[in-house]
Write a protein that binds this DNA or RNA. Structure first.
Length: 425
RNA sequence: GGAGGGGUGGCAGAGCGGACGAUUGCGGUGGUCUUGAAAACCAUUGGCCGGCAACGGCUCGCGGGUUCGAAUCCCGCCCCCUCCGCCA
């Protein structure tokens, strides 16, 4: 959510930001509603002040045993007027808010401008895609050949886009979770948390998933709760409605959680394998940062995610998303894309974003300046560190051998009982 | 799920229709005293919105209602505690 005052004073900048994102927002209507509301507020506050004074006076008159009937009648009329104005103000305020909460964050000046992902720009590359002297298989064939991925039974148990991991496959998944958590907590300075996986509507609103992405989420039938699409939601909401101390910033958290996405509208895409599942595991990093340093924190966060791929020896590239591809709440976002031989291209495995004060305003997360003064909104950031399912896919594909076995990346071996390869049993 | 009790400022805890944006204690901040500190004493001290400011408004879990006037009365919801039931 943007600051209404900022929009009022920088309407053209907001208009440009929205159009750079290839979106439309009834900005003029918003400004007009806001102007009307402010006019009403002036009258309303004046009436309320008079009402308050009058009521105090009635109290004093009564205490002195004097007659307050006339004043009482006047205050009754004033009370009606206030009620009418309040109703009007409330209605306009509601409409204002409906528009306001649908306005996306302002892209940072360093973000390439363009209407869609073709304007994304590669920032850097790491590692060489391996040259195979045999025909490499897609990870679903590697996994089925080793009897560690069972797609059919996943579908039987739930529905399509759910997968059963088995034996070394389940172990690999667990090893990756532990490897990533250890890396971030022991070397990158993050504190591990394990949050609720079901969250309420307010939490979903705060990080910007609601109202826009309602169709993307699994909701509970009998409770006002949603399955999280990412740990970003519960972890960012740790401090919802709180005021932090400046000297405690930045705060780093990481969390392993399952994630659930309905993937509405992506019916034909990535239909095979682990790439696009309704349920997947992810290790997520979340930061609460000082506004002055949040963009530096984004660079560090991205590097922390890259470190996972480097240690696993998976070739990747870093892409900065264009204005048209940027998510609703983000001001700037780097995607990490891992090399997948079966796709013959790089595929998103992590998304690292700075949300500036956009989520903090929705969530009301502030910090108190150390030198005193008014509290300010923090900046929130998060990034996958990284998506587990896609990492499994990348390992199976990049580390496969001609005989169908898969070498275990060295960094992972301590997490897999020293296992050096996954071979058919 | 059932029965009781309760949600008030950073914390503890009063107030239960008008002088209450809220007694008091602790904590915080400034000061006196002190070589320094502690103690003691004095002063000050919630948050948000609008305003250069003076000032004004909102805020006693949340949302409605009654009333000239609600922290206080009524209704609905949420949360917490105790006991019972159920349960990993």
């Amino acid at each position: 959510m943007l600051d209404l005052k900022f929009i009022r004073e920088n309407a053209d900048a907001v208009r440009k930001a929205v159009s750079d994102r290839a979106l439309e927002v009834p900005l003029d209507e918003l400004l007009e509603l806001d102007a009307r509301r402010r006019k009403i507020m002036v009258i309303l506050e004046e009436k309320r002040a008079r009402h308050k004074r009058g009521n105090k006076e009635i109290g004093e008159l009564m205490r002195r045993g004097e007659d307050a009937a006339a004043l009482r009648e006047e205050m009754g009329r004033l009370s009606d007027e206030i009620r009418t104005l309040e109703a009007e103000e409330g209605e306009i305020g509601g409409k204002t808010r409906e528009i306001l909460i649908r306005i996306p964050n302002l892209p940072d000046a360093s973000v390439p401008v363009g209407p869609d992902e073709t304007y994304n720009r590669e920032v850097r590359r790491w590692g060489e895609p391996r040259r195979f002297d045999f025909q490499p298989l897609p990870h679903w064939e590697v996994g089925e050949g080793l009897d560690i991925l069972d797609f059919q039974r996943g579908v039987k148990i739930a529905e399509s886009r759910f997968t059963l991991l088995k034996g070394k496959g389940a172990l690999l998944e667990r090893a990756l979770i532990n490897f990533m958590l250890d890396l971030h907590t022991r070397e990158h300075g993050y504190t591990e948390v394990f949050p609720p996986i079901l969250v309420n509507e307010e939490s979903m609103f705060s990080t910007g998933q609601l109202p826009k992405l309602k169709d993307e989420m699994y909701a509970c039938r009998d409770d006002e709760l949603y399955l999280i699409p990412t740990a970003e939601v519960p972890v960012t909401n740790i401090y919802r409605g709180e005021t932090l101390r400046e000297e405690d910033l930045p705060i780093y958290y990481c969390a392993y959680t399952p994630c659930f996405r309905r993937e509405a509208g992506s019916y034909g895409r990535d239909i095979r394998g682990l790439i696009r599942q309704h349920q997947f595991n992810k290790v997520e990093m979340v930061k609460f940062a000082h506004p002055d340093t949040s963009f530096d924190e984004l660079e560090k966060l991205t590097n922390d995610a890259e470190d996972v791929l480097r240690r696993l020896g998976l070739p990747y590239r870093v892409v900065i998303l264009s204005t048209g591809d940027l998510s609703f709440s983000a001001a700037k976002c780097y995607d990490l894309e891992v090399w997948l031989p079966s796709y013959g291209e790089y595929k998103e495995i992590s998304s690292c974003s700075n949300f500036t004060d956009f989520q903090a305003r929705r969530a009301d997360i502030r910090f108190k300046p150390a030198g005193g003064g008014k509290s300010r909104l923090v900046h929130t950031l998060n990034g996958s560190g990284v998506a587990i399912g896609r990492t499994v896919a990348a390992i199976l594909e990049n580390y496969q051998r001609e005989d169908g076995s898969v070498e275990v990346p060295e960094a992972l071996r301590p997490y897999m009982h020293g296992l050096e390869e996954i071979a058919a049993e």
